[in-house]
């Protein structure tokens, strides 16, 4: 297995995901055949996009570590670009935004170096202090605080938080434990995304009482609780394969990902509601934008990272 960057459990799990996608595609196909009058276009394009996303993610994970890091850096870039294109920005801040983009290669370079000390303070300290200084040298003070705040929120959420996914790959000592760094990334991403799907499915089939109607009118208690329960069960099942966690910690990780994934989702929903848009973009047919797909990860990635790092690394 020297030609691949991952261990057997990771490959088997990826194979399992493809099997689930195959079942999903067949189901949509059969549904369409049974009632040709009904349109399943939205569902079809959603499943097709899942194929593309899972395919690209699997390739990026399996080939080698540096390709995985470039993939995550590019994901941060797409998300930050979508965010900067969506929010009101000041004309004077064009060059400030350029510097904000430059934080992406630097942040992922620290990851590639496995330099934890720099990785964990670069954006919260250095970028946080530098960008307002650059804004001051340009000199526009109207809406200064709003601009400084929105730019930094984007960097924290879409670069700092997401880069925790990448740091899982380089955690010192991870290679010798269970399925290594790729096992941890796959565990986190698979649970976060399946938590989104499970919350949607439980909510659609049983949901009645709304959980947070002002922000996200489609979210229900049944969806939330069903999703968290499903994710916890999945975590207990997958953890022995993919991670060094024991059962108790696996259940805690499942709860953490289930609950914080929901929070990440509704936080981005609040942002979109504030801006008056339904989707953050149109890059992923059936899903919306990049931000719509990775919203939960912005919360689960840093929280799961510190959970596992505190307990095992």
């Amino acid at each position: 297995m020297n030609w691949l960057a991952v261990k057997l459990p990771v490959l088997v799990t990826l194979g399992g995901i493809f099997a689930v996608l195959l079942i999903a595609s067949l189901t949509v196909h059969l549904l369409q055949r049974r009632s040709p009058g009904k349109s399943y276009g939205e569902l079809r394009s959603r499943v097709r996009s899942w194929w593309v996303m899972v395919g690209v993610f699997s390739l990026a994970m399996v080939l080698n570590r540096n390709i995985s890091l470039v993939f995550f850096a590019f994901m941060s870039f797409l998300a930050l670009k979508e965010y900067f294109s969506l929010i009101p920005t000041r004309r004077a801040d064009r060059r400030v935004l350029f510097w904000a983009y430059l934080a992406i290669p630097l942040q992922y370079y620290w990851v590639a170096q496995a330099w934890y000390g720099m990785f964990i303070i670069f954006i919260p300290v250095y970028a946080f202090l530098f960008l307002p200084m650059r804004m001051v040298t340009i000199g526009e003070t109207r809406d200064f605080l709003k601009a400084a705040g929105t730019i930094h929120w984007g960097l924290m959420t879409l670069v700092f938080s997401l880069s925790h996914l990448a740091f899982l790959l380089v955690l010192p000592g991870a290679e010798d434990k269970a399925a290594g760094g790729p096992g941890l990334v796959l565990f986190l991403v698979l649970l976060t995304e399946s938590n989104d799907v499970a919350q949607y499915v439980w909510g659609k089939s049983l949901g009645r009482r709304k959980i947070i109607p002002k922000v996200s009118p489609n979210k229900t208690w049944a969806g939330f609780l069903g999703g968290v329960a499903t994710t916890t069960a999945l975590a207990v099942g997958l953890a022995p394969w993919l991670t060094p966690m024991d059962l108790e910690h696996a259940a805690m990780a499942g709860l953490l990902i289930g609950i914080s994934g929901f929070v990440g989702d509704v936080v981005v929903s609040a942002l979109k509601r504030d801006l008056g848009v339904k989707d953050s973009g149109a890059l992923i047919p059936g899903h919306g934008g990049v931000l719509d797909r990775i919203d939960s990860l912005t919360y689960t990635a840093p929280l799961f990272f510190h959970f596992i790092r505190y307990l095992y690394f």
Binding site: F77, K81, E82, F84, S85, R94, R95, L97, F98, Y101, G281
Partner: peptide, 10 residues
Amino acid sequence: GEGLLVPFFC
């Protein structure tokens, strides 16, 4: 009048 390209979705 600007020479520096800053990425935005268009």
